[in-house]
Design a protein around this nucleic acid. Sequence first.
DNA 1: TTGACATGAAACCAAAAGGTTTTATATAAT
DNA 2: ATTATATAAAACCTTTTGGTTTCATGTCAA
Lengths: 123, 123
Amino acid sequence: MSAAEKHDVFQAIADPTRRKVLQLLAEGDLPISEITSHFSMSRTAIAKHLHILSEAELVSGRKVGREKRFRLQPEPLAELKQWLSFYDQYWDNKLSILKHVIENSGENGLKVIEAEKDTDEPL
Amino acid sequence: MSAAEKHDVFQAIADPTRRKVLQLLAEGDLPISEITSHFSMSRTAIAKHLHILSEAELVSGRKVGREKRFRLQPEPLAELKQWLSFYDQYWDNKLSILKHVIENSGENGLKVIEAEKDTDEPL
DNA sequence: TTGACATGAAACCAAAAGGTTTTATATAAT
DNA sequence: ATTATATAAAACCTTTTGGTTTCATGTCAA
């Protein structure tokens, strides 16, 4: 019930481009060419990324007409979530977590935290 | 306050060996050679993995005597957790999550779930 | 001070990753 | 029927990864 699974979830999300693709698909199903339009690389490159995401079963593609529409399939992220949960017990307190999240405000959706910086809600 | 950070958390945990190293260090600080003894690869290889984990600030090493002891630093995992949380809204129900976790019972610590399969607690 | 131990660092290597360009094929629209 | 669109597939290229072996260095112990 699963393909060769050459790539797992951990590898799949390791690449920033693929994470951005996932984020895009979160807003709705999209065909390859439309996904490509959001990047500065060839359609072929994006197709390969989609293939890897597909192997990890994070996306699925079905051909409709002449285009292939891809859909987000977030279920495999559960494995990651579970893996992460193991390390919960090694955190002393929530402040150190929050500190790190704020400091590491990379490209990866800090919106939630940033939105809350104005409020006095200390989490 | 952070090094060159050539590798981020996502890349750091992409490799199964590095995940196993993290798991080992969760039980307590260890010097390189002792970590190496748990693997079938050279000490140099493990040292490189530790370096990558170090860049991601998932571990820290301090020299004590002639050995270098490494310690788990789970804080950067918060970034991952936050990234994950974005996709929570795309899950329909918890059953699909549980289903996937059980099916994908890889090497990555399924113990919790397996222990709960006997109970009638449906999560 | 002479070994043994623990690590560091460099050179090297094969395979995988992440791209590109080119060629082919199926579908839609005119 | 012809052309434009959307993708697929193959060949190729460069850089990174993940490993090795070799040699140098610092530290502990006898």
